[in-house]
Simulated assay, not measured.
Amino acid sequence: MKPEEKLASLGLVLPKAPLPSANYLLYSFAGNFLYLSGQGPKRTDGTYCCGCLGRDATIEEAYQAARLTGLNLLSIAKSALGELSRIEAVVKLLGLVNAEPDFSEHPRVINGCSDLFVEVLGDAGRHARSALGVASLPNQMTVEIEAIFLVRDQ
């Protein structure tokens, strides 16, 4: 099953790829690697899932925010590649979690994105990953995630 078909079977719809909000590119290529700039949990109405773990956001809320961020990343990948089936492998994710200093469950939060990638891309969605806590994120987002994909030629 193609990734777009898998998304549909899960009842998921890719949002429209965003425009950069500053002086950067949403993605860049280096050989067969596609690098995606960090994205957050932006909803279709333009608002973000916000909150700080350990203070005003739960792990489940943040997990869902990371899942939404994964959809946003896949949307950008689709706009860069034309179709998600060109993704040969998700190489690496860097997940940043807006968290209080004593919060320690960062991996559980970023699993929202990791789980989504495996659901949609199968074994190609498995990846290396870092999950870090930070004192704040733009727009008070709960998470920000960047990704590196290995892609097939057209």
Rank of each mutant, 00 (worst) to 15 (best):
S85L: 01
K92Y: 11
L84C: 05
A66R: 08
P15K: 04
L74D: 13
G46Q: 10
L74A: 15
L26N: 10
P20V: 01
L94W: 06
K92Q: 14
R43N: 14
E83T: 09
P41L: 02
E83G: 14
V97H: 07
A80H: 08
N72Q: 12
K78G: 06
G54H: 09
G51A: 12
N98S: 11
K16V: 00
K16S: 07
G31N: 13
L96C: 06
F103D: 03
K78Y: 02
A89E: 06
L26V: 03
K42D: 04
K92L: 12
F33Y: 14
L84A: 00
S9D: 03
F29E: 03
E100T: 05
L53K: 09
A99M: 05
L71Y: 09
L53W: 03
A57F: 02
E105P: 01
Y48G: 00
R67W: 07
A62Q: 08
A22Y: 02
G51F: 05
T47E: 13
R86S: 12
N32F: 08
L94H: 15
P20Y: 03
N72T: 12
L68V: 08
A66D: 03
G38D: 11
G40S: 14
C49D: 13
S21A: 09
R67D: 03
G51M: 04
C49V: 07
E83I: 00
T44Y: 02
S37A: 15
P18K: 02
Q64A: 13
S85T: 06
N32W: 05
N32Q: 08
T69S: 15
L36E: 04
A30C: 09
A99D: 09
L96W: 04
G51H: 12
R43F: 01
Q39A: 14
E61P: 14
C52R: 15
D56L: 07
L14W: 01
T58A: 07
N23F: 02
L19R: 14
A62E: 04
R55Y: 10
A30L: 04
D102V: 05
H106Y: 13
L25M: 07
V13G: 05
R43G: 08
L68G: 06
G38M: 11
S21N: 09
C50N: 13
S28D: 12
S21C: 01
L81F: 08
C50P: 11
V91N: 12
C52H: 04
L26W: 01
G51N: 08
L93T: 07
L10D: 02
G40W: 05
A65G: 14
C49G: 10
L19G: 10
H106R: 15
L36A: 13
E88C: 13
L94F: 02
F103L: 01
P41W: 01
D56R: 06
Q39I: 00
L81N: 14
I87F: 09
S79N: 07
L94M: 11
L14Q: 04
N23I: 02
L12G: 01
L36F: 08
L84D: 01
L81S: 11
G95P: 00
Y48A: 07
L81M: 10
L53S: 01
